[in-house]
């Protein structure tokens, strides 16, 4: 049932082994400062990996009770970018600031506002350009499949593959359905935890998803009194996803091949618009 385009876990694992190698090199050359910095990065990457494994476990079979509560522990003091990263790792797809804030409110403690988000993205790019690769991950814009230019207001994580960060014509819908599944999984995990169950904000969020997916919301008399069933949302979203997924993957893969020709910075933050006439020639 879990649907994740080229697993973010894989990307993180690659990242972790890269960091380990870099630490070994740094210690070998006696660069203690660099090694310490890399260790910090490694710890963060491992934490991200742990978090991700937790959510995936929860969705897989056990509906593990640790998921939601574990995420709630000590989360309120994190900087905004960590909040956003955590939400994006939960969703697994590019998301708009508004959705990020709703998901954050639904599943995580601490305060996150859309105002913070808008300044965040600029800072990320500046930080990357100042010292590329010095952070374990960057929050970057999604890329348009045609121009490989940054897509307004869709945030992704740099550890994802470029295909995952590309937005094709069908991707907004595909990503919406994929996030519906992830949110339903998280609600189910929280319900299984037994302590408090899913927060009202989480149920509201799930209901909003269910309302715009065919057959996802309960039907029949007194349907609005019954809560939305996460299982039903997952099934309905999965069913519609099957309709679009192949075409969308093909679009993204084609764009991804073109993107690999770009520089690293362009692959993360997009290319500025060059020449529209070139586009016309292609079309």
């Amino acid at each position: 049932m879990v649907w994740s385009m080229s697993d973010p876990l894989d990307a993180l694992e690659t990242r972790i082994s890269q960091l380990r190698r870099a630490i070994r090199d740094a210690t070998a050359t006696g660069d203690a400062e660099r090694a310490a910095e890399l260790r910090a990065q490694l710890r963060r990457a491992e934490r991200a990996w742990d978090t991700l494994v937790d959510t995936d476990d929860a969705s897989e079979e056990t509906r593990a009770p640790q998921s939601a509560p574990a995420l709630r522990v000590g989360g309120s003091m994190l900087p905004a970018r960590e909040h956003v990263h955590r939400v994006l790792m939960l969703l697994g797809v590019p998301a708009a600031p508004k959705l990020i804030v709703s998901v954050h409110d639904a599943f995580f403690p601490g305060e996150l506002t859309s105002a913070k988000l808008s300044s965040l993205r600029r800072d990320e790019e500046r930080s990357y350009r100042a010292a590329p690769g010095s952070r374990p991950y960057y929050l970057c814009p999604a890329l348009a499949y045609d121009l490989l230019s940054p897509v307004r207001a869709l945030i992704t994580v740099s550890t994802w593959t470029v295909e995952q960060r590309i937005i094709g014509p069908l991707s907004p819908r595909v990503d919406y359905l994929a996030s519906a599944i992830r949110v339903a999984e998280a609600v189910q995990a929280a319900a299984g935890s037994g302590e408090t169950g899913p927060s009202p904000a989480a149920l509201r969020l799930l209901w909003r998803f269910a309302a715009s997916i065919p057959d996802a919301a309960p039907t029949g008399p007194s349907s609005h009194e019954r809560p939305v069933d996460p299982r039903q949302v997952m099934d309905a979203a999965g069913a519609e996803l099957q309709v679009h997924i192949d075409a969308d993957r093909a679009d993204r893969a084609a764009a991804g091949r073109r993107a690999h020709r770009l520089t690293d910075a362009q692959q993360l933050f997009g290319t500025p618009l060059g020449d529209v006439s070139k586009l016309e020639a292609e079309a």
Binding site: L147, S149, P169, A247, G270, V276
Partner: peptide, 21 residues
């Protein structure tokens, strides 16, 4: 129909929002 969901944002073209482009 279900497959008809393709979406194109024409608010700007690669960050360029001039009407001609």
């Amino acid at each position: 129909t279900l497959p008809e969901v393709a979406y194109q944002d024409l608010n700007d073209v690669g960050g360029n929002a001039s009407p001609e482009v």
